[in-house]
Simulated scan of single mutants.
Amino acid sequence: MKREEWFNYQKLNAEQLNTFRENGFLIIKKIINPAGITQIQNECMTAWKKEKESFDPDKSWLQNSLLVNIHHQSPAVRDYYFEGPLVDIASQLIGPNIKGATSQLTFKMKGNTKPFGWHQDNGYGELEPYNALTTLTALDDTDRGNGCLWLIPGSHKQGQIRVAQNEEQKKSQSEIIVEADESLAVPMEMKAGDALIFNCWMLHKSDGNYSDSRDRRILFLRYADADAIEVYNGRKPRLGRLVKGTTRFEEVKQFESEL
């Protein structure tokens, strides 16, 4: 199978676009075919094992569960991130000019029972304009048993929630937890190869992985307007590879141009 056949390219229809506007999220089924999932799993696990050890309850979430810039270590992820079906979907939801803003693995391996509380992704890296997208592609079947995501439909309409942090909390990269009505939460159960897409203001959380035999491995890719700036960093342009359209920032035009 050719690499481009690993992915299922598609456009969102009017109903899906309206659902995203109202609820703030969509699940796209089978966006990666089984052969593509196997390749991505293999490459991601090779990278993971180079840098990560087994789960340690005394380590931070960052140490136990996250590996950044996975597209630097996985050619299959790089193709999916920069040229896969999520790029066209992002252009429908954000606009014609798109850049990749983040790529990472967020793995909750069996035995990692640490929850991650309610938060907005734009709380950890506030970008403007406020239309950045988080995409989570499941590399395993994910459900309540192995720590799937939960979110609150429509919560993106609250806008940016400000959480005060002192300098020590910022330096330690402590969790930015916000209050949420648990009764409104919906589990995002997916099959391997499905992708969850949601607005940067969406309230979401994940519980621990209480399965004794199943990992919960997710590929986290974030897309933003090509001219998006970092509000938290002197309003500098967010660096990321331009994947569609144009940008006014020369730094973005040149970023990762060698890849």
Rank of each mutant, 00 (worst) to 15 (best):
D227G: 07
G159K: 04
W201V: 01
D140L: 08
T247E: 05
I152V: 13
V163P: 13
F25I: 08
A14G: 00
T246N: 11
A228F: 00
T106H: 15
N146I: 10
G24M: 14
G145V: 03
R241Q: 15
R21D: 15
E53V: 08
K2P: 07
A35V: 12
N69P: 00
K11R: 09
Q120T: 06
T46R: 13
V231M: 02
R3W: 04
I27P: 02
Y232V: 12
F220D: 15
E258D: 01
K236F: 11
L151D: 01
I89H: 02
R222A: 15
N146S: 13
F220S: 14
L67D: 02
A192T: 15
S174A: 05
P96C: 07
L133R: 08
N209L: 14
V252R: 08
T113E: 05
I176W: 01
D140K: 12
Y124P: 05
E251W: 09
D121N: 15
Q104C: 00
Q173E: 11
E5S: 11
D227H: 10
P34D: 10
Q160F: 14
N199Q: 13
A180V: 05
C148A: 07
F220Q: 13
L259K: 02
E179A: 08
P153M: 06
D227Q: 08
D227A: 03
A47Q: 06
V231T: 03
P85W: 03
M202Y: 12
C200P: 11
A132Q: 06
F7Q: 03
F7D: 02
E43F: 15
A132N: 05
E250M: 09
I94G: 04
L105H: 00
L259Q: 02
E189C: 10
I176F: 01
R235N: 11
N33T: 09
L239C: 13
S172N: 06
Y9D: 07
L239A: 10
Y223I: 14
R21T: 12
L219D: 03
G147E: 13
K52L: 01
L17D: 10
S91W: 04
L17F: 09
V87W: 02
S60E: 05
Q165R: 10
F249L: 09
S211Y: 12
I176R: 06
A195G: 10
V231A: 05
L219H: 10
N146K: 07
L17H: 03
G117F: 04
S174E: 08
K59S: 00
W48P: 05
A90F: 03
D215S: 14
N97A: 02
S183Q: 12
Q120M: 06
L239V: 11
E251F: 07
L66T: 10
G193D: 07
T113L: 02
W118Q: 10
N97R: 01
R222W: 09
E258L: 00
S54I: 02
L86H: 02
V243R: 04
D212P: 15
K50D: 05
I229H: 01
A90T: 03
V87C: 03
Q39H: 09
G208A: 12
P237G: 05
D79W: 04
D121Y: 11
S172W: 00
R162S: 01
D215T: 13
N209E: 13
W118L: 11
V77S: 01
E43C: 11
G159Y: 11
I161V: 15
C200D: 11
